[in-house]
């Protein structure tokens, strides 16, 4: 049984990001892999060690501040789980939160959880639009698609990015990189949502979660015709 933690679904329900949890669940169930999801809200009890996949989305500023406050009390447990290989997907605001700090346009530094060594600073204009990345997952090159909409510019220092930008802005519109990776943690600005539109990434996360549990991790193939057509249509449209 894989157990998914959907962190703060009540708070962080912007941009259709719950589709990520849905895709993870569906692609397990379609293969007959038992899977369950637990929604954890503000102040609710959570043992990160019990989970196989953790999803953190983004919200509006006020909601993100509430989330940051709550997570600070749990940061040690979360760090331990991450070091033990917990599979994490953090999108947009959730991504920014895992870094060291967010520097506002007034120069104030809002501390993050510091799980990863990167930082974000307020940009002068929001980076909005469709994105295509080239990512390497399990040694295979693949194209990921999504939609970015972020005011912050993130610089990931020594971390590996999720992918290199073929179209769009990425982390900061400057270095051609998008997202960040550390152990089994995957961070990205891409909405869309990311997982339904990129089944290869979803399956990779499922594989990592299974491996970590010591389960056989070879996944049965699914009929992904629709997913592949949708993904390819966006790639063709943006890259011509």
């Amino acid at each position: 049984m894989l157990t998914v933690c959907h962190l703060y679904p009540d708070l962080l329900n912007l941009y259709g990001d719950r589709g990520n949890v849905l895709a993870f669940m569906r692609r397990c169930s379609w293969r007959g892999l038992p899977v369950q999801v637990r929604e954890v809200n503000l102040g609710g009890a959570v043992e990160f060690a019990e989970y196989d996949f953790l999803f953190i989305g983004g919200g509006s500023d006020r909601e993100q501040a509430l989330m940051a406050e709550d997570l600070k009390n749990r940061v040690d447990a979360l760090r331990m789980a991450v070091d033990n290989g917990l599979v994490v997907l953090a999108i947009c605001g959730g991504y920014q939160l895992l870094g060291r700090y967010y520097r506002t346009s007034q120069g104030r530094e809002i501390p993050g959880l510091g799980l990863l060594d990167f930082y974000t600073e307020a940009g002068d204009k929001r980076l909005i639009g469709n994105v295509v990345l080239e990512a390497e997952l399990a040694g295979k090159k693949t194209k990921l698609v999504g939609f970015e909409n972020h005011g912050g510019k993130t610089f990931i220092n020594g971390h590996k990015p999720l992918g290199s930008v073929l179209y769009g802005h990425g982390n900061n519109g400057q270095d051609g990189r998008e997202g960040a990776r550390y152990k089994n943690v995957f961070c990205s600005y891409l909405h869309g949502p990311l997982l339904p539109r990129n089944p290869i990434l979803t399956d990779y996360l499922i594989t990592l979660a299974l491996e970590r549990k010591g389960y056989p991790s070879k996944l049965n193939a699914l009929d992904d015709e629709l997913e592949n057509i949708a993904n390819q249509a966006m790639v063709d449209r943006l890259l011509g």
Binding site: I128, F147, P196
Partner: peptide, 9 residues
């Protein structure tokens, strides 16, 4: 709206 991710909500 160029972002259609709202369909997932």
């Amino acid at each position: 709206g160029r972002d259609i991710s709202w369909l997932w909500d």
